[in-house]
Nucleic acid binder design. Structure first.
Lengths: 234, 234
DNA sequence: CAGTGGTCTAGACCACACA
DNA sequence: GTGTGGTCTAGACCACTGC
């Protein structure tokens, strides 16, 4: 692991262990340089990581301070995968509805930038939070990249498998969010009245080399799902 | 303006002017260092900026490539203020409904971290996109920080005024997103049936020194509003 | 004006992609 | 193995905050 990541982790643990509150001042740069025996740039890189994660904020001419978000139980829109971390205090489970190899819909082919006659894995899953339905997920994986999937992988973590099992590097994503009314099928799965509000999140995930490999449409139960986002550098 | 920002801007313009497509390769680091007569770290810092903005992606051992998002007409959730940039092809206008100095609600006081007897500016506005209602906004500004507001400021850009008029440094934000059903009042303003879906976005904005100064609740018209978010470094 | 964070440089060395 | 991006260092100098 890289030095600046290690330093970032150590500072993060330090903040956690000492239960530092919003606004607490961290040691100055020079002290951190000595403590971690490293150069200024490396410390700054570690701090930038923490700032991006929303754990600290830096004020020029003044110091480095702890930042704490005020609300709990919201899902981080940028948490780079999964609700696990945000909702770890809750009980999240996944149920597979279907897993099959098909030809993509027009929409899926467009978003995956592939031809309509190429094979894709089509996966439908439901996520539960403390027994209640959290969301309904429909995903398409480019089979020429994600060459194999089975029930176990799909019930656990597909992304972990892609990274570790297939040795692929996941790079970046695009996410599109809107609201709408639940269809009959959706309201049945989510156990909510038809035409109730839903939150729709469409995501496209790309490998580090820029190739899209996953297009997902997720419908969230409006009574269970709340999202947050931390902005930096306005 | 800082050197790395200038370089970032120039590269951005270069991409725009040459209409580079998704996946186009940019010159290698060494070439960029020569072209902009600067050190490696400065170029990398400029590229990191562009990567964060979602304009390029860097692949170690391979090169620097142009990234283009696939859809238009969505609002960037991280665009650091305003829809102007995302929706510049559309006609956005703002109408002020009310502007008054009041004592905060419990909710506003909590989010602004002030006492309930401190004064706040309470602002209600409607935003239109091509004549249709886009959203309904209710904001509270800590009057001890944002000492003055008038109709003109509120109809134009409050944030520009805070930055330039008051000389304050805006730092970071927290945003919370959920869905719900429109109330009678909201549906009247948004010209949609009562109980139709709405998207609620609550934001808290902080000065660079960590003090919250603005708490806003925005209700979006579900037929007009679509958001996007670019993820990096998964 | 002292204290503190940020920018920029030059250069050594490392890690990964791809042919 | 060559090309290419990323990490890390030491140090000069700049810019902002707050007493």
């Amino acid at each position: 692991m890289l030095k600046y990541q290690q330093i970032a982790n150590q500072i993060e643990h330090y903040i956690e262990q000492h239960q530092l509150q919003q606004g607490s001042k961290l040691p100055v740069l020079e002290t951190l340089m000595e403590n971690f025996s490293s150069s200024k740039s490396t410390i700054i890189k570690a701090l930038d990581l923490l700032e991006k994660k929303g754990l600290i904020f830096q004020v020029r001419g003044s110091g480095i301070f702890v930042r704490r978000k005020s609300r709990r139980g919201y899902i981080n829109l940028l948490s780079n995968q999964g609700f696990k971390k945000d909702l770890e205090e809750f009980d999240i489970t996944t149920e597979m509805i279907s897993l099959e190899i098909v030809k993509p819909t027009q929409e899926a082919a467009d978003n995956l930038q592939i031809a309509k006659d190429q094979d894709v894995y089509h996966v439908k899953r439901i996520r539960y939070i403390s027994g209640q339905t959290l969301c309904l997920e429909e995903s398409y994986y480019d089979k020429s990249i994600v060459t194999y999937l089975n029930k176990q992988i799909v019930t656990e973590s597909i992304f972990d498998y892609i990274r570790e099992g297939l040795g692929l590097n996941i790079g970046f994503s695009e996410m599109y969010i809107k609201t709408g009314k639940l269809t009959d099928e959706e309201s049945e799965y989510l156990k909510l009245p038809t035409a109730d509000p839903k939150l729709i999140m469409e995501s496209i995930f790309f490998l580090a080399n820029g190739t899209p490999f996953d297009f997902s449409k997720v419908t969230y139960n409006h009574e269970q799902s709340q999202f947050f986002l931390l902005g930096t550098g306005l």
